[in-house]
Amino acid sequence: MTTKRLLVAAGGGGDAITAAMVHSALHGSAAPALVLTYAWERLVVDPVPGPRRATDFTGTRSAGPGLALVTPDTRPVPPAGSLLPPLAAGLRPRLGLLDPYGGATGLARQIAAAARWCRADRIDLVDVGGDIVARGDEPTLRSPLGDALAVAACAATGIHTTVYVAGPGLDNEVPLPVLMPRLGAPAFALTAEDTEGVLGVFDWHPSEASAMLVAAARGIRGVCGTRDAPAPLVLDEASRGVHRLTLRRTLELSPLARALAGSTTLEAAEEVSRTVCGFSEIARERRRAAHAAGVGASPAPGASPAAPRSVGAVRARFAAWERATLADGIEYVTSRRITEELELSSTEADVLLDELRAGSPVRRAAPLWKLAPDRVPEPA
Results as ranks from 00 to 15, higher is better:
163 V>T: 07
257 A>K: 02
182 R>C: 03
317 R>G: 14
89 A>K: 01
68 A>M: 13
222 G>M: 06
113 A>D: 05
128 V>K: 06
378 E>G: 11
30 A>R: 12
294 G>H: 05
323 R>T: 03
215 A>E: 02
210 S>G: 05
203 D>L: 12
306 A>V: 06
16 A>N: 05
111 I>Q: 07
48 V>W: 10
359 G>F: 02
220 I>P: 06
251 L>Q: 05
5 R>V: 10
329 G>W: 09
33 A>V: 07
163 V>A: 09
15 D>T: 09
36 L>N: 09
315 R>S: 14
194 D>Y: 08
334 T>A: 07
264 T>V: 14
29 S>N: 04
176 L>G: 06
354 D>E: 14
208 E>Q: 11
45 V>Q: 11
293 A>H: 08
223 V>N: 06
312 G>N: 08
163 V>G: 07
290 A>K: 10
286 R>P: 01
279 F>M: 08
377 P>T: 01
80 A>L: 03
275 T>R: 15
59 G>H: 02
5 R>M: 02
269 A>E: 04
160 H>F: 00
38 Y>W: 11
140 T>Q: 15
43 L>A: 11
65 P>S: 08
333 V>D: 01
196 E>G: 03
249 R>W: 05
268 A>K: 06
318 F>N: 03
267 E>F: 08
187 A>V: 03
192 A>I: 02
281 E>D: 13
174 V>A: 14
178 V>R: 13
361 P>S: 15
142 R>G: 05
366 A>E: 15
106 G>S: 10
356 L>S: 02
44 V>Y: 05
362 V>N: 07
339 T>N: 11
205 H>A: 07
168 P>C: 13
239 S>C: 10
190 L>P: 09
95 L>G: 09
58 T>D: 13
338 I>F: 01
68 A>E: 13
204 W>D: 04
146 G>M: 07
33 A>S: 12
279 F>T: 04
120 A>C: 10
290 A>Y: 02
70 V>Y: 02
293 A>R: 14
306 A>R: 14
6 L>Y: 06
319 A>T: 09
323 R>C: 02
